[in-house]
């Protein structure tokens, strides 16, 4: 997933023999920093509007979204390079996927309980 982005050879997984030691700040870092800062601002603005009613589901949902780390585990385990990286990657997949499954499940269970009062008097 990372290699196609921008095609930075020095960081490419699939050509691990090429890279040279670069001591300056890589340009990938700067572009990631852009993304991080923008995402943090978007997150801040969107999440600020979440009703305090739903703060618990909010936390379990962001947990489930955060479990997207699973894709990193999949790539590392799937590349099957060394035993240690495969094992660590697979363990990461298990840990993250449990969050993804559990997080979505419980968030939905909680949200299903929130009901409006029946249209009656008032």
């Amino acid at each position: 997933m990372w290699s196609p982005e921008g095609g930075h050879k020095a960081r490419s997984y699939f050509a691990p023999d090429e890279p040279v030691k670069e001591e300056h700040v890589p340009s990938d870092f700067i572009s990631n920093l852009y993304v991080f800062v923008l995402a943090a601002f978007v997150g801040f603005e969107v999440i600020r509007r979440v009703s305090p009613l739903l703060h618990t589901p909010l936390m379990s949902l962001t947990n489930a979204l955060d479990a997207i780390v699973v894709v990193a585990g999949i790539i590392i385990a799937g590349r099957h390079e060394t035993v240690i990286s495969t094992v660590l990657g697979a363990a990461a997949v298990a840990a993250a996927f449990s969050n993804m499954v559990g997080g979505f499940l419980i968030t939905d269970r909680m949200l299903r309980m929130f009901k409006r009062s029946k249209p009656k008097q008032r």
Binding site: M1, W2, D28, N32, V69, I75
Partner: peptide
């Protein structure tokens, strides 16, 4: 990992 999807999440 230079992965934007992880950075955003």
């Amino acid at each position: 990992l230079n992965s934007k999807v992880l950075v955003v999440a």
